[in-house]
Design a protein around this nucleic acid. Structure first.
Lengths: 202, 202
DNA sequence: CGTGAGTTTGACCAGATGGTCAAATCAAGA
DNA sequence: TCTTGATTTGACCATCTGGTCAAACTCACG
């Protein structure tokens, strides 16, 4: 492996292919359920070749998670203290719901990790995530104190948004088993919109 | 193994110990992440001894899931068409929240299974679960038509209840990383109560 | 071209894991 | 107590899986 040079064309291509394949495999089988061979095959590489780019299975998983954490938290980052309270929150919820629809693999990757006690990202939770949430809940509390939105426990408000939106990605099978052919997001969007309008109305 | 006789004292004790141990292990590591040895040790048995009671790892998992499905759906079963609509629904939500608090392993067992596409219980979802949900959403729609509660998409209403309540068990690590020392359920109970009162108010 | 770095692979290894089996031990009723 | 079926186990096996390695191959560039 090159020491610290700029990545070659081949390196870029293969690293990307590996991470893409790993996202597929890890998100649908969990860390333990995924095999290096499976990821290699899906990436179109041999196992030793894959291990030339990432030293261990763990390293692939870590690279994937840390690379995706930013994407995952982006919607909350965008919550703007200067916007209209109700519209800011509803827009955040809409963005989260879109992520469940467009990036379900990413959602399940994190879900798998969290359900099993987050053995590999616990640190990020109590540092990065905690800090971001505290920053944004402060904004929410400000809006509550100004009477712009209803008084609610800010942390539980955030939890409810995560739970409601990610549910559609993480428990997709169950949702579809109930809904049949109906598109989940068709009904989900107006539902959560209504729910939070009623909840947040001062 | 005895053919079809009534289970002996020892059989009862060991089968129970195995299922209890399996619940611990499967719920915190998923099916693939759990090892038979681990379950055996936790149950106080040797591996071959465990396999004397259940022929395969798969069989333990199946027995566990099907045995627990009933428990899991019980709260919804209790929803009574003849009760007061608002109070019936709020009571259902309270029962679900209590289950997240008191039976988090069971919740995570199902969560693990569902996140990975429910390879082992898909059938139960589209039969048992679907039937129960349809039966109960019919009641909800009845109440909506009578103007007793707000008009909402009944399936998504159910999903929201599942999502909100099970979130506290399934993503416990994350919830605690944010809340710190605060007891999650202390705040969750009034929060969801308020949320659904506002949502369901006609 | 030629060359050295970058890339790929077949063969291989060690440990983990699900499962088997024959033999030993135990329990309870006749 | 004796007998028979129930229970338990040590030893073992095949397979899977993460990871290694030396040798071969390919590419970019002087």
């Amino acid at each position: 492996m090159s020491k610290d040079r700029a990545p070659t064309r081949i390196q870029k291509k293969n690293r990307a292919a590996i991470l893409e394949a790993a996202l597929n495999v890890f998100s649908s089988h969990g860390f333990r359920g995924a095999t290096v061979d499976q990821i290699a095959t899906e990436a179109g590489l041999s196992k030793p070749n894959l291990l030339y780019y990432f030293p261990t299975k763990e390293a692939i998983h870590t690279a994937l998670l840390s690379g995706l954490l930013e994407t995952w938290l982006a919607p909350l980052h965008e919550l703007d203290a200067n916007g209209d309270p109700m519209e800011e929150i509803l827009a955040y919820i809409r963005r989260k719901l879109e992520m469940s629809r467009d990036l379900p693999r990413e959602s399940r990757l994190f879900a798998n990790e969290l359900v099993q006690g987050a053995p590999r990202i616990q640190d990020s939770l109590s540092s990065d995530l905690k800090i971001l949430v505290d920053e944004k809940t402060a904004i929410l509390v400000g809006w509550m104190d100004q009477g712009k939105i209803a008084q609610l426990h800010p942390y539980h408000l955030i939890f409810s948004i995560w739970a409601l939106t990610q549910h559609y990605a993480d428990f997709d099978v169950q949702v579809r088993a109930i809904l049949g052919d109906e598109d989940p997001f068709e009904g989900a969007e107006p539902f959560v919109d209504t729910l939070y309008r009623k909840l947040l109305m001062p």
